[in-house]
């Protein structure tokens, strides 16, 4: 039987959709920048899921809000580093296609 649709289920389904779309994007895109977009989608879905789990159940709300803030902080740090890495890759390989990054050399 199907359980009734609760608000938390809707939020979790949206978060799951963001995760799946992000995964799809990471594999489907050919450039590094396109992959970054997919990663941001996945991180956002994680934040949404954490928030919904804490706000809509008897769990203390602060845990979910602080957890979402930490996810946002990690996403910001990750975006900063990825920008620098993408710049270095562009300088060395003259492009950001993932298939072109096939050499390992210091």
């Amino acid at each position: 039987m199907m359980p009734e649709v609760s608000p938390m289920l809707i939020y979790h389904l949206v978060a799951l959709f963001l995760l799946c779309t992000g995964l799809f994007g990471v594999i489907y895109r050919r450039t590094l920048v396109g992959m970054i977009l997919g990663i941001e989608l996945m991180l956002n879905g994680a934040g949404l899921s954490i928030m919904a789990s804490a706000q809509l159940t008897p769990t203390p709300n602060e845990i979910g809000q602080v957890g979402t803030l930490l996810v946002m902080g990690i996403a910001a740090a990750e975006a900063t580093l990825l920008l620098a890495i993408v710049l270095v890759v562009t300088r060395r390989f003259k492009g950001v296609e993932a298939a072109r990054l096939a050499t390992m050399r210091g």
């Binding site: 450039t31 590094l32 920048v33 396109g34 970054i36 977009l37 941001e40 996403a75 910001a76 975006a79 900063t80 990825l82 920008l83 993408v86 710049l87 562009t90 492009g95 950001v96």
Partner: peptide, 15 residues
Amino acid sequence: AVSILIFFAIMLTQS
């Protein structure tokens, strides 16, 4: 912040 960073990445890599 993050989307501006990504926009810079798009712009600087000309992709």
